[in-house]
Nucleic acid binder design. Structure first.
Lengths: 347, 347
DNA sequence: TTGTAAGCGTTATCAG
DNA sequence: CTGATAACGCTTACAA
């Protein structure tokens, strides 16, 4: 409860000197500074942050908008942001609301307007028209993660990721490769799913397989991928020989579906995902790695730099995805022998 | 950028009247109030929250401590809290750090001391001695979720949940049932894993099977459960006939391990979890349901009530777990025929 | 019912 | 190098 006045009195100096000594701004003799510091810690002095904010105009707080927390990507990004902010003594106020929800509208109307934070990190947020205006009115630094929202953004190269995934499959000789996940039209999905669809399509057409390109939409989640895959794999006519998941969660869902239906991965079905989710290793899923926690950390540092007054030019950081080959993909030529091997093993 | 002074001027009243009209405290004629309100919204006035805080001493912010976000339970609780707070116009500052981490120490030292929030919700936090003191020094309302931390807490009845899970298995005729997940000694785990172990043990001893009780420790996560289960199930001598997962993530991990090893669930192995995770349905996992988002909402409302001055007596809300029977458990007598059926199907 | 004036705890300005 | 003194934007006695 001790205020700076107490510290000043106890150190035998004025409030202003105490303030200078503590904040490190302005001239203070080393000796005085030491005395003030000692007094402060003796009294357990901690500046009252809202008083500081009122005086300085800065809040030492950044806002983080995110559609939900129960997806690995979002949770990891937020954790990354948190850890980077903590280092600089910044607090993080969470604004978590799914797009189109009532909460989301309130978030934008309410929290942004209060200018409660010095800057904002938007994770997987695709603002609609109204929201875009509100963001502009916010008039403070914004950096976005997971898509190309604002002037400043960080994400993996979603298109390249999907392209590489597809080409990996193509390179193994597959011709019937589908992409699983996302909305039917490939819009309104978060985290660059649209881009991923594009990457897939371009890889297919480049291989002269444009006509064979097939998008199986489904909710972007493990159960979502599972459900759609069960349906698709159950029917021999719709079953592809390879599949790229719009993200690992969907891909893993598909693998589980395959296992349940007795479709062996990778012998009968090759699967590749995008993300390198924490489950990927356990499922031996070949995938394109991204590091959401690192993206979060980078976003936070970028924002802090901007807040520190460094006028960085607008830029879009595109993390290059790295192909991690595990054991969910196989060449088509192997398929036949693998099947033979499998059935031999069974009998 | 319009301040209350602008509103006052534009409405032709004094700052104090404007303030009263807007906050609703004190006498203002209806007519004046209307005029002020109009002026405020015309100017797009939004009170600067740190000025309000400085004047009132309240911050309209609550802190949420949580060990991590990438577990379903935590993420869901936080989402629940967020939604409840939003309704009351409260902001949520996130303090996310795993126990024992450097970040965690900073959180406690730094964020709590700044008295940055009016109250705190601790989710799955088991404070050590130092931390307990710091929490006490915080001197503001605290409610905890997921264990019996403070004066006010919310959780499911973990012990009952594990007991019911175990009894369900026992009732199906199983005698070799193990519990999977958590630390070797059953301590230092979050979310009441210790309690769950106790519930399991008491159910076993009550059934005269105390000597047969077996705890397989593992990291409380899907991969954790998977890894431990692979090891345990691979050896016929260590393979139990039934298994209760300390939570659904572990249980699902075990089911995946079982599938991979050709151990059929429920024919060869019965599995029950605790949580009713979003994956539970897809795996047809029998489990004991809890609703973390509801717990979060309840916690938030409780805290807000306390902040509103309602002196609620300290209490520990124990949500009763509900058994959701799906398809991961079977009676032992069925096992033999099931195995026969299965092998017949294979040949 | 309304206005005046005094804070709330810091920082920032500007003389000393 | 240090110390008064004035902000910061709002609320709240207290007086009118």
């Amino acid at each position: 409860m001790a205020g700076i006045a107490d510290v000043a009195r106890s150190a035998g100096v004025s409030k202003s000197t105490a303030s200078r000594a503590l904040t490190g701004s302005g001239y203070v003799s080393d000796e005085t500074r030491a005395r003030v510091r000692a007094a402060a810690s003796a009294l357990g002095y901690v500046p009252t942050m809202w008083a500081v904010s009122l005086a300085t105009g800065r809040t030492n707080t950044v806002g983080v908008m995110v559609p939900s927390l129960d997806r690995w990507f979002f949770a990891s990004v937020v954790e990354g942001i948190q850890s980077a902010l903590l280092t600089d003594g910044y607090d993080l106020v969470l604004c978590c609301a799914p797009p189109g929800s009532d909460s989301r509208r309130r978030m934008f109307a309410h929290s942004l307007a209060r200018k409660r934070f010095d800057g904002l990190i938007a994770v997987g947020v695709e603002p609609d028209e109204t929201e875009r205006e509100q963001l502009a009115a916010f008039a403070r630094p914004i950096v976005s993660v997971g898509h190309d929202g604002g002037a400043m953004s960080i994400s993996i190269d979603d298109r390249a990721a999907a392209r590489i995934a597809t080409e990996h499959l193509l390179g193994l000789g597959h011709t019937d490769v589908v992409i699983l996940g996302g909305d039917p039209d490939g819009r309104r999905t978060s985290v660059g799913d649209g881009e991923r669809l594009l990457g897939y399509r371009s890889a297919m057409t480049d291989a002269g397989l444009g006509a064979a390109a097939r998008h199986i939409p489904c909710e972007v989640s493990l159960p979502g991928g599972y459900g759609a895959a069960v349906e698709m794999l159950a029917d021999r006519r719709t079953r592809p020989s390879a599949l790229v998941g719009v993200c690992d969660e969907v891909a893993v869902g598909a693998m589980i579906a395959a296992r349940r239906l007795g479709v062996r991965v990778p012998e009968h079905l090759s699967v590749v995902g995008i993300d390198d989710h924490s489950y990927a290793d356990m499922f031996a899923l070949t995938t394109l790695q991204q590091r959401p926690d690192e993206q979060g950390r980078t976003a936070a540092r970028l924002l802090l730099d901007m807040l520190a007054g460094e006028v960085a030019p607008p830029r879009h950081l595109l993390e290059a995805p790295r192909l991690v080959v595990r054991n969910s993909t196989a060449a088509v030529s192997d398929a036949a022998s693998a099947i033979v091997g499998a059935s031999r093993r069974r009998t």
